[in-house]
Amino acid sequence: MAELVDKISELSGQNLDACYQCGKCSGGCPSVAQMDMLPNQVIRLLQIGLPELALQCNTIWICASCYMCTVRCPRGIDLSKIMEALRQVNLRENLDYMKIKEIKEEDIFILPQIALVANFRKQTA
């Protein structure tokens, strides 16, 4: 699995070993309540060579790319880019997180068009 970790590191441009697991990213994340795994735990799984588990969590999809974690990280790690890299690895396998057919019709009417477009880009292959 070392190759997959290297790929995520390359895609994101981040040194995963720089993280010292302080948890400041998780503490400040505005979406953390919806996540099944803390952002720092996602990094941890990559550090210990378990990227397949990191690819399965919902954290990477819930991440809004708000960059709160990135601006506060004491080690200068851009977590948003790591989350994006993990999404990319999934999407390249055609594993859509959002199933377009499952969107309810009433939601389509309520949601702004731009939100739908953004979601297609972020969560579908």
Binding site: G23, S26, G27, L38, Q41
Partner: peptide, 12 residues
């Protein structure tokens, strides 16, 4: 204070 307990894996 917003933080996380990294050992329990929970936001605080």
């Amino acid at each position: 204070l917003l933080s996380a307990d990294t050992l329990a894996g929970m936001p605080i």
